[in-house]
Write a protein that binds this DNA or RNA. Structure first.
Length: 663
DNA sequence: ATTAGGG
DNA sequence: CCCTAAT
């Protein structure tokens, strides 16, 4: 009945979706969400227990190496096991590559952190390649003195999960009903999720190409939507924090709503093993995606600050660390934790073309490859300090963050021609990394052990459910981008200068000046972030702060045109009364968009469409979209009216008949 | 948990 | 965006 009606009144020739509005439970199942979640949960339990074990063993192995061989074997097996689980599609993203790094005892010394970080960067356990000249250590050292901005690069690109995402995007039809729309092109069928996934990978971006996906652009011609599907080169930028496919495992976190994050990086690792051991069953909430959440790292945390040897007096200093992609806007393009490039050896003559390249591969006669990595940038820094903070405090704050990042366990991923090299056991030659090959297509990335850390965050305060503390770093930290990335310097990426801290590429001059310079209003390199009253308030670390933070409004996140398009498209198909379905269809992975948000956005869209263009504010939504909004809104209200009117009409007609009879 | 609507 | 009432 319902279904029939929808078909009868298809909107503008659209075929109405074949989504019967059954009971919610039933409807839910048609998205196969449950099973996916189960799979994820399952995977995570496994990951959890494995991780715990690994950590435990690594800890104990320090004191006893009696059964070291077994441990090694076991670890290997477990990792393979984990990989197997991941490979089953639970999260096809790059997280699958994340090895557990277990040798990360707490260290208080910055030096040790650096050294460890350096050691973690050895490329390929079984590889002949040695990291010979890790200049980045020097860089960092310099930075610690001079705050060379090169170190503090606020963002970068997510790379990875190319394969899986393309598959998801191009091949999968999540719902049978989505295939029958007249208007629907391949691209149209992309949910926002798919777009995000596709675009999230810079591996898709040919740096030598001028082709640029409109998704990258804040304002793009709406007409171009239908063509995206065929573009292999998609790029996407958004303030969204929920891009990473692998983040799905952390999604749906309630913690997202209650940003109560007190940093306790020091206790993270020790507690980690205990935590995972004792609580193999993790709630989603506990697996907080803290790294995707605004995380307030309070230097008030003495454990942390003291450990770094900073006398942090900044009761009112607030450091926010966000997920990699948050606040990407306006950031340089070539990656976060990244050196500027990798270039071939001088022998190949390529290095000459790129004198600024910071990493060089030398290939002497013995066929050994030497990597020189000049500098690394640190992504994912979002720092807030009050205006009254001193420059020194700012420096210390940044330094803390930097050191904290370096302390985190990271490992290196290798990309060859944009493809991840997953097999650690293959030789370089087999993999295609040899003196003869195109080494300029080789790139590396730093990856934190993101699978482990988020849970630890919850350990900080067991009393409160999801009070996560220290976030992990970004799930994926590109490093050592090879090749030129000029096309990524898209001006459209610089549209939202607010709330970001960015390093200055070319700041080779007096770094001290640089930072002062950069903090000047208007400077693109470092934008002073307005601080919230809550953060400014100097209160004892008590419930006051807590309450204030919990009660804090969600950060405003204007809908991008892309999102609007997705919304409009979904509403066109689903109507205005099914926000949950809209959410599931088009914003499933955009966890910060609730169905209420979507509904509200639609409301404002309708309003926007009705007012004159002059009255509109913010990012201009293409008129074409607004027209569609009005059309769809009109259609669906009418449709709804008909629905209602049906019964009334019946009643009315009865009355009518009655009255006729009476007359 | 969703939906609808006011603030 | 938030809050709430009503489903």
């Amino acid at each position: 009945m319902v279904l029939k009606k929808r078909l009868d009144h298809g909107f503008n020739g659209f075929q109405a979706p074949f989504i019967p509005r059954g009971p919610r439970s039933a409807r839910r199942s048609c998205y196969s969400k449950k099973s996916v979640e189960d799979g994820q949960a399952c995977a995570f339990e496994l990951l959890a227990s494995l991780a715990g074990k690994l950590l435990e063993e690594s800890e104990s192995s320090a004191s006893s190496n009696a059964s070291e061989g077994n441990h090694l074997v076991n670890d290997r097996d477990k990792q393979d096991e984990v990989r197997a689980v991941i490979a089953e599609g639970i999260h096809p993203g790059s997280c699958a590559e994340s090895n557990f790094i277990t040798d990360v005892p707490s260290q208080n010394s910055s030096q040790k952190s650096l050294l460890r970080a350096k050691n973690d960067l050895v490329i390929g356990r079984n590889s002949d390649v040695k990291v010979e000249a890790f200049e980045w250590e020097n860089k960092i050292g310099r930075c610690s003195n001079s705050y060379n901005n090169k170190l503090v690069e606020a963002a970068g690109y997510f790379r990875g999960s190319y394969d899986g995402n393309v598959k998801n995007g191009f091949i999968q039809e999540r719902e049978a009903g989505s295939s029958g729309f007249q208007r629907s092109t391949l691209a149209d069928k992309f949910s926002l999720k798919d777009q995000l996934e596709l675009c999230g990978s810079p591996a898709l971006i040919d740096s030598n190409s001028n082709v640029k996906s409109p998704y990258c652009s804040e304002s793009f011609p709406s007409a171009s939507f239908s063509k995206h599907g065929n573009d292999t080169k998609l790029g996407f930028r958004d303030d969204d924090e929920n891009f990473l496919r692998c983040n799905e495992v952390f999604t749906k976190s309630k913690a997202f709503r209650s940003p109560q994050h007190i940093a306790q990086p020091k206790i993270r690792k020790p507690l980690l093993s205990k935590y995972w051991k004792s609580s193999p069953k993790l709630k989603e909430c506990e697996l907080s995606k803290s790294e995707f959440v605004d995380v307030d790292v309070k230097p008030l945390n003495h454990k942390r600050t003291a450990s770094h040897g900073f006398e942090t007096s900044q009761h009112n200093t607030l450091v926010k660390r966000r997920k990699f992609f948050d606040r990407v806007s306006g950031v340089t393009s070539d990656g976060g934790f990244s050196s500027e490039s990798v270039s071939n050896s001088p022998e190949k003559g390529i290095n000459g073309h790129n004198p600024s390249s910071s990493a060089k591969l030398h290939m002497p006669k013995d066929s050994h490859v030497k990597f020189s990595i000049k500098s690394l940038r640190i992504p994912d820094l979002y720092i807030e300090v009050p205006e009254t903070a001193t420059v020194g405090m700012l420096k210390r704050t940044i330094m803390e963050e930097v050191m904290a990042i370096l302390e985190d366990s990271v490992h290196v991923g290798v990309l060859l021609q944009g493809q991840k090299v997953n097999d650690d056991n293959r030789t370089l030659v087999q993999t295609g990394i040899s003196c003869k090959e195109n080494l300029d297509t080789l790139s590396f990335m730093l990856e934190p052990s993101s699978l482990l850390a988020p849970a630890a965050a919850c350990v900080a305060d067991p009393s409160s459910q999801c009070e996560t503390s220290q976030p992990t770093r970004s799930s994926e930290i590109p490093v050592l981008e090879s090749g030129n990335t000029d096309t990524l310097h898209d001006p459209s990426l610089l549209t939202n200068p607010g709330n970001l801290i960015e390093s200055n590429h070319d700041s080779t001059t007096s770094p001290t000046d640089t930072i002062i310079e950069n903090i000047t209003p208007g400077s693109k390199a470092l934008v002073a972030v307005p601080i919230s009253p809550e953060a400014l308030a100097v209160v004892p670390v008590s419930q006051k702060t807590k309450r204030a933070e919990i009660a804090q409004r969600r950060t405003r996140r204007p809908f991008s045109v892309t999102e609007v398009e997705a919304l409009v498209h979904a509403v066109e198909e689903l109507g205005t009364g099914r926000w949950r379905d809209v959410k599931l269809r088009a914003f499933e992975n955009a966890d910060h968009r609730t169905y209420v948000d979507l509904k509200d956005k639609w409301k404002t869209l309708v309003h926007t469409a009705r007012i004159s263009p002059q009255q509109r504010r913010g990012e201009q939504v293409p008129q074409e979209l607004l027209d569609r909004v009005l059309a769809a809104h009109g259609y669906w209200s009418q449709h709804q009216a008909k629905q209602n009117g049906k019964h009334q009409a019946i009643a009315g007609s009865v009355e009518c008949v009655q009255s006729l009879v009476m007359v």
